[in-house]
Design a protein around this nucleic acid. Sequence first.
RNA 1: GCGCCCGUAGCUCAGUGGAUAGAGCGUUUGCCUCCGGAGCAAAAGGCCGCAGGUUCGAAUCCUGCCGGGCGUACCA
Length: 693
Amino acid sequence: MRAIPFAGVWGTSASVSYQIATELVTAEAAAELEGLSKKEAKRRTQELVRQRAQAIAEQVAERLRAADGFASVEAVNGYINIGFDTNRFSNEVVHAVLTTGDDYGRGEPKTDRVMVEYSQPNTHKAFHVGHLRNVCLGNALSRIMQFAGFDVLQANYIGDIGLHVIKTLWCYQRFHQGEEPPRAQRGRWLGEIYTEADQRLNYRQDVVDLLNDLARNDATFREAVDRMMKELWREHKVGEDVAYLLGQIANAREIKTDAFYDDETIKKFWPIVGKQLTASLEAVRENPPQPAAEGEPQPFTAADYEERLERWQRLGEHLDWWPHVPEWQREVRQTFQLWEKKDPAFVQLWEETKAWSMEEFHRIYDQLDVHFDVWFYESEVEEPGRQIVQELLERGIAEISDGLPVVKIDEKLGLEKETYRTLPILRSDGTTLYSTKDLALTKMKFEQYHVDRSIWVVDVRQSLYFQQIFKVMELWGFEQAEKCYHLSYETVMLPTGAMSSRSGNVVLYEDIAARVLQRAREIIDEKNPSLPDEVKDRIARDVGLGSMKYGMLMRDNNRVLVFDIEEALSFEGHAAPYIQYAHARACRILEKVDQIPTEGLTFADLTPEEINLIQQVAIFPSEVERAAAEYKPLVIANYVYELAKRFNDFYRACPVLQAEEPQRSARLTLVAAARQTLANGLGLLGIAAPETM
RNA sequence: GCGCCCGUAGCUCAGUGGAUAGAGCGUUUGCCUCCGGAGCAAAAGGCCGCAGGUUCGAAUCCUGCCGGGCGUACCA
């Protein structure tokens, strides 16, 4: 049974005649099909089933007509289409919505307690669009499951310790000691320190990566460098390093960061690289390369050279970093030991700077109207995690391999094929890994919060990792391991490529929020200039942030989201403002009447637009249930857009206030029901439904 | 190598084994004396990556292939 797939018909459609026809035909026509080829037999069966299904549908329709109680019964293409009594069903739907109000669509209370862990931002790092997708998803999922009847606990898991924090604090102490940014900027400023730390510590690798990239992929570069270096060698007699570079590049062999004798080599070599890149770029611009044959490596285009040249330039600004990198890396390891020893001064610095980030996070959550019931911190599960590692070792589930504790999961499960691989659970220097902490956290969720199910909303790149964690928990004998679910979603990319704070290719949350709010405000100033300022501000927030959230939710989880700020700033078409606008229009109609009747209405001679709208309103509860069962906020995002669309159709085709009674009352209640459902649906996505905009 | 995900209109994407595969953006043409034009109507645009299979019926399920992304022992 399903809704009749044609617009403007209120009823249901059944395909049972096909099942019956199939059974009958296969039984009766066996003899006839005997001698035919497989293909012909198939075609003949298809033909017979079609005819038979239609015949059965007609018979059934005939009976149902006699039974009475349906508005219409028809046999079409083998389907039995049953039209409902529109008046009765419309009354029921509208009555249900208006009497339950904000609770329309709410599911029966369920016994399961579910924890949804999401957001998990790292302190000392920037909050960007990638984090935004996570928050929107996790929060919408929580709201939906709660509304569907589950007892939901929303949990945040703050990454307040780990290598990233150590790196940031090292960089702060080493290069920015005593500096203090303006209060509102402190979280962001720390994020910049982190980026700098990362750039410094990876400097040698980044330099060598560029060289290797060129040596591997660009034949022109190999030849030119070979020529130039030979000259350099003859003229200056610079020693072994040049020979090394020459050899590796000419043969497209990998250059290693630690294979240099002289720190000055790179400084001398760098201009040569740039010179060659510039020359290649010019050559390619004048004379674009022909695409290589199938299977051959493609020659670099102008864009390829521009990108490399840009990297070359950026790295060239810090050639003086090169000699220091090994020493910096040593310092970072020492800094980690300060944390391990709980050095009081260091712990104090950590607490202070952590608070800077937390302040920013709280500001963001408030703005997004996101509220957590439980706050976990990585720093709090380090010790419990170590104990679990200890126990896993004692029980032989974990072992020491290459100097660190790991669990060889496939081996322990007796799997031949590589599936779960090996999970390291503690660093060889004794510092904790993400996995160390997650093992403890998983246990804590079930034992301290007594949840029946636990959902992790985390990026898809960690799916193997979570499979590993859950399997290790299972091996450890933790029964609730099967109640753990990783809800993965694809990454957020930018039109310029993958996000990376190191290369500066990031879009920060605060920047998009600011732009979206500003744009919303401009539009309101233009469309509704007479509103008071504070009302305009509130609407700008509802519309701007709503639009931003909807953009994060309108795409399927396992699809990469390319975040385009221009798209986010467009409030037309398939976006939250469209839905909010339908809601505001409904409010305009409703405010012009004193009272909305809820019973004894006459829904007679309904137009297709009215029927479509009532139908869409009617399926809201089942859509909520489906969204919760499938963990898919997208279901609601699609639903609420479709509802707005149908409302707009109705709005155009059906005058309400000027209609004659009893049609006027019926339409008024329909508007009220649609408005309520729009508001409820938007609410599940964490999006406001303003009355004016 | 192995594993996971994606491939649908020019672009970005919806689509629960069922009837004629839908939106938005973009393009073209219209609609405010009428409950708000952040709207509406119309046109154009499709071997649903390819090839098999299952089924009365496949964009949807299965297998293989092609193309792209991601993951794959001390990052999180």
